[in-house]
């Protein structure tokens, strides 16, 4: 019954001679929250392209469930100031249903910005508009590329909270790519540590003790993360 929304089987990607990704095997089921972390050049963006179907794997397979709808929040989308665009018009490029637009904007807390020009939004507001656009069509898979970039700590926490709530409501799978290890550790179910291949994966506290992770990010960082997450867990697990 629960067919995975998207699955990679021994998937690899190479551009010419350059091998970007190799031997990736994992699947995402409805309700999963997976966060991909990894150093620069680890192939995070390429992985996203595989998941979205923008790129096809040069080895192995990448499969999406038939008819799976995908919502995508791209990384630092910068709009040309020469292009006049209101939030409403931006969302209407994705759907013509006015009520859906209103509902999605309300859901992400930016309903009041519907008629505003996209050029005058703050970073946090714009991320919420992008998120609203991504959930317009009730996606089965939500893909977010560095969604919290440029937000302050409160803004980041609120955004991750919102993503979690949306996951609960839509029962969609959520794949996030992030640099911010602290927040990742605190707000995800599964961490996938990428460095061309999958180094390690698991729950946050488990992974912060994994030798591969410690190796990749250094002992001190791994330890602070373990402590941080432990602390955070207590305040939330009632």
């Amino acid at each position: 019954m629960t067919e995975p929304v998207v699955s990679l089987t021994n998937a690899g990607l190479r551009y010419g001679d350059k091998r970007i990704l190799q031997d990736l095997t994992f699947e995402m089921n409805p309700g999963d929250i997976v966060t991909v972390i990894g150093p620069n050049g680890a192939g995070k963006t390429s992985l996203i392209k595989l998941m979205l179907g923008i790129e096809s794997p040069t080895e192995g397979r990448a499969e999406r469930r038939r008819g799976a709808r995908i919502g995508y929040v791209p990384q630092n989308l910068s709009l040309q100031p020469t292009l006049p665009l209101t939030v409403n018009r931006f969302l209407r490029l994705a759907t013509s249903e006015h009520r859906q637009i209103a509902r999605a904007l309300e859901r992400t807390g930016v309903g009041h910005l519907r008629q505003a020009s996209v050029h005058y939004l703050s970073g946090g507001e714009f991320q919420r508009v992008l998120l609203a656009r991504a959930i317009l069509r009730n996606p089965d898979l939500l893909v977010l590329d560095e969604p919290a970039q440029g937000l302050d700590v409160n803004g980041q926490t609120a955004l991750y909270e919102l993503i979690r709530e949306i996951r609960d409501e839509l029962n969609c799978a959520v794949l996030t790519v992030s640099h911010d290890l602290h927040l990742v550790m605190a707000s995800t179910d599964t961490v996938l540590c990428l460095n061309g291949h999958i180094c390690c994966r698991g729950q946050p506290e488990q992974i912060s003790r994994d030798p591969a992770f410690v190796n990749l990010f250094g002992e001190r960082l791994a330890q602070t993360l373990a402590v941080y997450h432990h602390h955070h867990n207590h305040s939330h697990d009632l």
Partner: peptide, 17 residues
Amino acid sequence: WRGLLMITIHDELAAVE
């Protein structure tokens, strides 16, 4: 028109849609 606007706003977002 709609497609041209979308690739102008963001190429990959347009592809996903």
